[in-house]
């Protein structure tokens, strides 16, 4: 594997999402809030689970024990890797790793739609626009003016609602401050979660909740063995859940 980036090269801010699997009830509020915030169109009538445009997908993992323990729902946005496998494969630099924030951004207007990044991503968090985005007549008025609509034929994915970070920066600089108020930058999914299963913050700040949570023994990362260095952490009080979800899918067979 490629060498994982060392802490010395890690960004000054490391925006991190921690998902508490104990709390997730699979209600779908995160994905819905995400679609509203990021102007993701309603499904085309022919769209399926495999052709839809979904940035925050909630998957149902099998029950943790044969005795029928609780089902675990796993919300999967872009994992915002520190060593992303997607950035290097894009032929025209339509994916950028922001060295200041650690956020992996997709630039839809530069995307050619070759889908190589989708092949490269082991987390399957990208969507290709198989159809033109369409809203029922009049519903365009409900679109969020801070986010542009992506056209047919390009790839898109979660960017931790980076437009909210930009707004927070604008607000801070207007107030003459150098750093943003952490309360001003919360992605839509985190804001929406009714059972508060999602924690978001800057893990570069050692005292932040996400820094503390992501380091304790209950937290793990998906496909950590691949060395991609995701900044989305999952946690569960159930060791069986932790073990099962830390594995690589191909080993099951």
């Amino acid at each position: 594997m490629h060498t994982t980036k060392h802490s010395s090269t890690l960004p000054a801010h490391r925006y991190t999402l921690v998902v508490d699997l104990d709390r997730c009830t699979g209600c779908g509020a995160c994905g819905t809030a995400c679609a509203v915030e990021n102007n993701i169109p309603p499904a085309n009538e022919k769209a399926t689970e495999r052709t839809g445009t979904v940035w925050m997908r909630v998957l149902e993992a099998p029950a943790s024990s044969a005795a029928g323990g609780p089902t675990t729902f796993v919300p999967i946005p872009c994992q915002q890797c520190d060593n992303p496998p997607c950035v290097d494969v894009c032929p025209q630099r339509a994916i950028e790793y922001d060295p200041r924030t650690g956020i992996v951004g997709q630039i839809p207007v530069r995307c050619l739609g070759c889908r190589y990044c989708m092949v490269a991503c082991p987390y399957h968090t990208r969507s290709f626009n198989w159809w033109s985005p369409e809203w029922p007549a009049g519903m365009e008025s409900t679109l969020n003016p801070d986010v542009s609509v992506r056209t047919r034929g390009v790839v898109e994915k979660c960017n931790f609602c980076v437009q909210r970070l930009q707004a927070a920066r604008a607000k801070a600089s207007a107030a003459g401050q150098k750093e943003i108020d952490p309360a001003d930058y919360v992605p839509a999914c985190v804001e929406a979660c009714p059972s508060r299963a999602l924690y978001f913050g800057d893990a570069a700040d050692e005292k932040s909740e996400v820094a503390v949570l992501s380091k304790d023994g209950e937290s793990f990362r998906l496909l950590a063995a691949l060395g991609t260095g995701p900044k989305v952490f999952y946690r569960s009080s159930d060791p069986v859940v932790r073990e099962r979800l830390s594995r690589t899918g191909v080993t099951r067979g």
């Binding site: 769209a47 689970e49 052709t51 839809g52 979904v54």
Partner: peptide
């Protein structure tokens, strides 16, 4: 998004 584009 929840009924057709995911299996949720």
């Amino acid at each position: 998004k929840l009924t057709r584009e995911t299996t949720l």
